[in-house]
Amino acid sequence: MEAQKVDMFIMMNSKFFEGHHLSQIRERLLAMDESKWGILQTLQFKDPTTILIVSILAGSLGVDRFLIGDTGLGVGKLLTCGGLGIWYIVDWFLIMDATREKNLAKLQMVLY
C-alpha cells in the first residue's frame, strides 16, 4: 500500500495501539494489498481513555471488560463485586493496555 495512506492511518489511529507495536503495524500495512484499504477504513477501535472512564465509574460491575469484549472476565468481575474491590482498582491501571491489545487483535483480523 502507498506510504502516504499508511502514514495517514497511523497518524489518525496511533492512540488506539501500543507504541512499540506501531512500527510493526506500519510495515504490515505497507506490505498489504491495496484492496483491503476500504475494510481498514471501516474498522472501529475502542478508545482507551473512554474505557478508563467507564472502568472508574462502573468497573465493579465489570462494564469495562464487557465493552472491550472480555465477556468472561466481565462476568467474573460482576459476580464478585469487582473482585472484592481489588481487581476493580487494579483494572484502572490494566484496562488501557488491555483495550489496545484488543484493538490490535481486531486489526490483525484484517491484516492476515
Binding site: S60, L61, L78, L79, T80, C81, G82, G85, I86, Y88
Partner: peptide, 18 residues
C-alpha cells in the same frame, strides 16, 4: 465491607450478600 459501591453510596451492588 469491600464493596466500593456500597461503601460510597450506601446502595448495595448486584453481588452484595453473596
Amino acid at each position: 465491607g469491600v464493596c466500593l459501591i456500597k461503601e460510597v453510596t450506601h446502595i448495595p451492588c448486584p453481588s452484595c450478600g453473596s
